[in-house]
């Protein structure tokens, strides 16, 4: 009986995680978002959850870029573009990246 209760609790936990836990990897894996040359995430396929997630991550990225730019004596855009190149380089195969021409392609 105890095992059954544990099993039910685990299923419920997994179900709730599936419903709410759209994270960066999940969004990229589902083709909802991708990396851009400007250093920020872009929305490939718009859903409310994807836009909310991308907007939130970009706000945090911008804070990080600004802090790094201050520390290194360069501008925010310079840091963001450098970070964008790195992020695109490290994007996993099959995930979306945006070309300098503005097209979304799978890497």
């Amino acid at each position: 009986m105890k095992t059954v209760k544990m099993l039910i609790a685990m299923i419920a936990l997994l179900a709730s995680m599936a419903a709410y836990a759209l994270d960066l990897d999940g969004a990229k894996g589902q083709g909802l978002g991708g990396e851009q040359p400007d250093g920020y995430l872009g929305v490939v396929k718009a859903t409310p959850q994807a836009v909310e997630l991308v907007s939130d991550i970009n706000a945090k990225r911008r804070d990080a870029y600004e802090r790094i730019a201050r520390q290194n004596g360069i501008t925010l855009d310079q840091v963001a573009r450098l970070a964008g190149q790195k992020a695109i380089e490290k994007t996993a195969e099959g995930h979306y990246v945006k070309t300098p021409g503005g097209q979304w392609v799978t890497k």
Partner: peptide
Amino acid sequence: IGEEITQQ
């Protein structure tokens, strides 16, 4: 800084 940003 490139690596540093990626890590962050």
